[in-house]
């Protein structure tokens, strides 16, 4: 016993070090399981408040770009408003409105914190459960896909960026609907990899890659990027494709959170049919 105490006394520094490291590792492991762990820390009201205040100040620096973007979007909206269309004779045809059942709802939100240079990147946005945001909703910007909501608090949500080890987006080539998946290899925030395209498919540089709509999270036909480099490793059946992402993760400040109103129904059906 005395020997043990002497040992403890001699190496107390080392033991204290071990204790702290064990605590840290426990925290990491609990947190790494990102689906189950409620990301308390990221979506915590305290850190959210600090980031909001800071963004409130820095926002002034980009007012000019924000205005330009707004006018552009306004013009686009004008283009599709009823006033921009020629009104044909309403008696000659008839629109059955029940054909169009709404599936996706878009909520605008502001990005108040983000990283792009880690291996696993997250964003924090200023809409939370109070505004109807929930886990597993998609996030897009005005020119492409951004990520998926992985945690919500009352007023904030934490978004797993496309630039993440675990993100995998179901995608297709626009010109021939060939299905693939987009993952990020961790080097450059402007580029990602498109997998699972077999070697018989005709693919060219500049081809557009869009979401497939098979994931229940994103609607189909949302822009992901364009093909930048195509390689066929010898002896492989699938191409190595690098795509240039259309979203510029380093400058985005605003995004839209997409709610799939039929997600529950789709998941339920999928559960029923795959269980047996």
């Amino acid at each position: 016993m005395r020997y043990l105490l002497a040992l403890l006394k001699r190496f107390h520094f080392f033991f204290f070090f071990l204790l702290l490291e064990v605590i840290a590792v426990l925290l990491i492991v609990r947190h790494t399981n990102y689906q189950r762990a409620t990301i308390i820390n990221a979506t915590n009201e305290l850190t959210g408040g600090v980031y909001s205040t800071f963004t409130g100040v820095t926002e002034y620096f980009s007012l000019k770009q924000t205005n330009e973007r707004l006018t552009r979007e306004y013009a686009e909206l004008k283009n599709v408003s009823p006033g921009a269309y020629y009104v044909s004779d309403t008696g000659s045809f008839y629109v059955n409105d029940s054909l169009f059942k709404r599936q996706f709802r878009y909520r605008p939100a502001e990005i108040i914190a983000k990283t792009i240079d880690k291996r696993n990147n997250y964003l924090m946005m200023n809409k939370g459960s109070r505004m109807g945001v929930a886990k597993d909703m998609g996030v897009v910007s005005h020119n492409g896909i951004v990520g998926i909501v992985v945690g919500v608090s009352k007023n904030y949500c934490s978004v797993m960026s496309l630039l993440h080890k675990q993100s995998r987006i179901s995608a297709k080539l626009k010109k021939n609907n060939q299905l693939g998946s987009v993952v990020w290899n961790g080097m450059d925030y402007r580029h990602a990899t498109l997998n699972d395209i077999p070697n018989h498919v005709n693919i060219n540089i500049g081809d557009t890659v869009i979401t497939s709509g098979y994931s229940f999270i994103f609607p189909s036909n949302i822009m992901i990027g364009t093909v930048k480099k195509v390689e066929l490793p010898p002896g492989e059946n699938f191409y190595d494709i690098t795509i240039a992402l259309s979203t510029d993760f380093s400058v985005i400040r605003h995004g839209y959170i997409i709610e799939n109103l039929m997600q529950q129904e789709q998941r339920k059906l999928q559960g029923e049919t795959t269980d047996d």
Partner: peptide, 28 residues
């Protein structure tokens, strides 16, 4: 030294959504 470093790492972790990582590295 150890304990303040641990707290420092944890403080950074809280904000950067990497709970435990900076704490472990800073303690080391």
């Amino acid at each position: 030294l150890l304990f303040t470093s641990f707290l420092l790492g944890l403080g950074v972790d809280l904000f950067s959504n990497t709970i435990g990582m900076h704490a472990a590295a800073a303690t080391f």
